[in-house]
Write a protein that binds this DNA or RNA. Structure first.
Lengths: 199, 199, 199, 199
DNA sequence: CTCTAATCGAGACGGTACGTCGCGTCTTACG
DNA sequence: CGTAAGACGCGACGTACCGTCTCGATTAGAG
């Protein structure tokens, strides 16, 4: 008898996830206690631990798939020949899941989401890293990932949100394009390996 | 007799700040408890509260001035005609305070620092906002601020850190320049259908 | 279809009782949890409750008949004309069920057993109480019962146990005889002042 | 600054002890939870643990000295030439502390008290054991100790308690004297070491 | 030999107690 | 009188067991 299929367990997990998202809209992650979640979900305190290890686990369960989707879209927006189309696809996706992403990014979980997003990005990126690229691949990814979250978070926070096309344009011109087309300036030549310049 | 001038008080505050920074190098902010700080500082538990409201207050006292400096340098790097020189100045400054900034950014306080940095940036920026700019001034600032922190944090985390000039070059080409020179693409004409006129 | 006759149910009850006794040899009653019993018995948690109300119920089921036997023997040892023969019969009986009685008295259930033993003794004794006896019948019974348990428990705990006859001798001379032959000392005349006439 | 001397701590310990005794009059030890004690004492839950390791610790703190006194009196009643005077002293002492001993013995702590009493008795007795005595010294002590508790407990439970002299008489004639004057019956001679007689 | 009803295991569930930790406030004693 | 030590109430932590319950899967024995 699988936990995942017992209708009671399914109901409980659902209730917990929803309660958690509701609370996230109101207060930051660190201030949400497990008793809070249980009260909100109408679920016993112990029951929580039967299903999740910690509140972060709930967040993961809610967000993992979403984040993966987002990363996939961000990557294709970055690597595709038609960046604009990719960017539009990205923002369209988030717009379609606006309620969830609002809770995740404008509520109290932004920094947790950022960290998870960046962790996953890095993971995926290391697989296709080209060692000698300039700028170094890892920082490029960090910057894109960080900026993506920042832009999305800003976009979702707006009372009168920008049109998808406008957001996509910002995304393309300020985040994707500069990263992709960054080239080593011709002026700099010799590289010191050990930072002799500092101090 | 002012608390600020009593030599004992001064000594205590100093001990607390140093202990706090030492702990920050080892574990993330949330895992540092006030008892931890007191033990590390060799100071009584109550004494902490005589001088600080919470551990965040200590962080602020340590970091506030540093952050303000950093923002000033980042702004002049952004607004100056010679971006490269500004960028070099910025990284030179951080390099000169490397121990402190390492504790702040590569230790467990990165997200707190990011938030404070962005809060202050936003504050300063709203004063000189030009309403109809494209891209909107606020998101430009958020992106610069966020990316600045990200790049610095990455730079400080490197085992063999990049030379200041190289870091500055990344900063200029990937962060500052794209923001400053971003222009509305002439292609954009028709507005989106679903959420027609934003702003 | 009676629960008591279904072979599965019979098997389960048996497994539970045996597991319980095995655990009793290792740890005191209070430290044995129902999950423990179920694991030891290889029986599902719910199944336990299908058959018993609580772990005490299991103990009762195991011990009730034994205790009743013991009381009967103790009574006849006390009331018979040949005390010694009665005492020998008592210890012989316990020796014949040594494994069980060891678990009950030298394991963690001694105080539960004592209480049950005394409860039953009292019950039986009230039926044949002679109100004005000296010493009062109830305390005589309590003392015999308590001492009986104590002596048995001690006897079973010995590494090299005393021979049955020796144990019986102790029983007779130190427990039974003094109780039976206790008489009000003739010297007692005047009553105490503060709590004058009891009874 | 000693915990023992801080008036707040002293007050708290006192409150806890009293609450504990009050509860003991109403329900057995195992059913008293630490939250119960704290509510009864008007003391925070955590505070309990600042002073005691467990509820048993409280019982010990209350009872240890009393039990030691009792043992001393019981021993002198047993060993003195004038047993009767010793017995009277014993019951007088308990009568003088009737409230406390009632809580300890007629409340829910009887079996805990019995165990502690017997543990301490045994400890003291092993120091002056004569190996070859008959009856064996250890069982003699166990029987006296157990019976002492039983008699006291019975005495305190009576609605109209027996006069001290009467209780003392029972104590002497039924408990002390039989133990002291128990002699090996002349009939028994040869001793088997390994209980060949069993089974 | 089949079918139907019980018993079985597994474990979800809401509670409550456990003992620990950190919080922020408050007494207290000492220098 | 200022400072250190720590008592105190509070509430979260994660774990354990309680007793009840729901749920499929055997499995026994009646037809």
């Amino acid at each position: 008898m699988r936990t995942a299929r017992d209708p009671r367990a399914v109901r409980t997990r659902e209730a917990v996830r929803n309660a958690f998202l509701r609370l996230l809209e109101r207060e930051p992650l660190e201030q949400i206690s497990i008793p809070d979640i249980c009260k909100e979900a109408g679920v016993g305190y112990t029951t929580f631990y039967r299903h999740y290890l910690a509140k972060e686990t709930v967040l993961n369960e809610v967000a993992a798939e979403e984040i993966r989707q987002l990363i996939a879209l961000a990557m294709s927006a970055t690597l595709a020949t038609d960046m604009r189309a990719g960017a539009v696809a990205l923002f369209t996706y988030v717009d379609d899941h606006r309620a969830l992403w609002s809770a995740l990014l404008t509520g109290g979980a932004e920094s947790a989401m950022r960290e998870e997003f960046m962790r996953l990005s890095r993971e995926i990126a290391t697989k296709r890293a080209q060692p000698k690229a300039w700028p170094p691949a890892d920082i490029a990814i960090l910057l894109i990932a960080s900026s993506t979250i920042e832009l999305l978070s800003w976009w979702l926070r707006q009372r009168k949100p920008l049109a998808i096309e406008d957001a996509a344009e910002i995304y393309e011109t300020m985040i994707v394009r500069p990263t992709i087309y960054a080239k080593r300036s011709t002026a700099r030549r010799s590289r010191s390996k050990k930072r002799p310049a500092s101090q």
